[in-house]
């Protein structure tokens, strides 16, 4: 199917690791398209004299001293892991080589 809306939804879903089935794509694609269409009004705003606003508190230069504090007990963290063994998180076999 070469519906660009559906392709965009599929591509974006893949980036976001959402494994949408066809029924979901059917449901989400028109909603997604409608939202984008509606939001396209932003294109009409004159923004040339505005700097991007990336934060709201305006604080700067927040640093902490390089001091070690106790870590959590491994059980406290691993206790929430769906799968763990011998102190490790366990995930499906994968090859190495990420950044």
């Amino acid at each position: 199917m070469t519906d660009p809306e559906r392709d965009l939804v599929r591509h974006t879903a893949a980036l976001a690791r959402l494994e949408l089935d066809e029924a979901e794509v059917d449901r989400l694609a028109p909603q997604f398209a409608a939202i984008l269409r509606h939001f396209r009004v932003l294109e009409s705003v004159e923004v040339d004299d505005a700097e991007p606003m990336t934060g709201a508190s305006g604080v700067r230069d927040v640093l902490r001293a390089d001091e070690v504090r106790p870590s959590l007990a491994p059980d406290a963290v691993l206790g929430n892991a769906p799968r763990s063994s011998d102190g490790f998180y366990v995930v499906p076999k994968t090859v190495g080589g990420e950044e």
């Binding site: 690791r17 929430n80 892991a81 769906p82 799968r83 998180y89 499906p92 076999k93 994968t94």
Partner: peptide
């Protein structure tokens, strides 16, 4: 993503499949 906390569904047996 099913690794450190929260729900998990194994999926197709691959890591990225498990995430999705």
């Amino acid at each position: 993503d099913g690794v450190g906390f929260g729900a998990r569904t194994e999926g197709d047996g691959s890591l990225q499949g498990m995430f999705a």
